[in-house]
Amino acid sequence: MTEILQVTIFGLLLGGVYALFASGLTLAFGVMRIVNLAHAVFIVAAAYATFFAFEELGIDPLVSIIWLVPLFFILGVGLYMTFFVRIEGSPRYVEMTVLLTFGIAIMIEGLLGWRFTGIYRQTQPSYLTDAYFWGDYIVPAGQLYAALLSLILLIALWLFLRFTRVGYGIRATMQNRDAAQLVGVNVRRVSAISFGISTAFAGAGGAFMSYLFPFFPFRHWQWIALLLALVVLGGMGSLKGAVAGALILGVASSLVVDQIGAGWGPMAFYAALFGILLVRPQGLFGKEAVA
């Protein structure tokens, strides 16, 4: 029993960070119908930024969030206005976003590989090996901080969507783009802001990735597969769904790794995805028909 609970704690901590990674991806799909294959490469790029800020300037990864979030927000808005505005209204818009973001992902990956080579990196802050003890249970400090900060960012996003005017506009656009236009939401502006938030979350996520998950440029493909799985599981475009999916799969894969073996983790992850989609093809919180 103790062991199961211990593994569940690990799974929840992992799931909290997954939730942050996936929420940015699902936001981009929910508001702009962008299937952003470059989301994970943004996270990896932010992980590099965090890594070098730590190595060269001694800035703690968690402190780096303070500059990564605004920087990646601006990058996201810039990318949206430069590339995505051009394909707005195209009859094959969603498919175009897949190709466009695929191209962006390959380009950024190439730049990262050229500049920083393909070797594994990992930031080594002091708390990487620290742990808190709670009765019989171990809570690794680095993972705890990452999960808590992810939670704070997700709550901030929720409050923003719930209580601000722009937040109303974003939610309206997610639920019914045409009707949002008809109540006066400038959907292009709202889309640019949402994409900025999505990449800002990737920026924050990169700070955690830099010390939790060793990375190299090519690694992002593995991540995007996992993140797309989380988002599909939760229901494309559903924030609640992405968070629930991340926590469920985080715990499920931790349990499988513990009970059966490390090699089974990724497989269990996708098996759970298939299982759930067989029962609910639209995902946990998805709508029946996503156009």
């Binding site: 939610r171 639920q175 019914n176 009707a179 949002a180 109540v183 939401v185």
Partner: peptide
């Protein structure tokens, strides 16, 4: 074209966006 996942009150509030 109401917003399905918003309450009646929120739907009205956003009408005055």
């Amino acid at each position: 074209a109401v917003f399905p996942e918003m309450s009646v009150k929120e739907n009205l509030t956003i009408g005055a966006y």
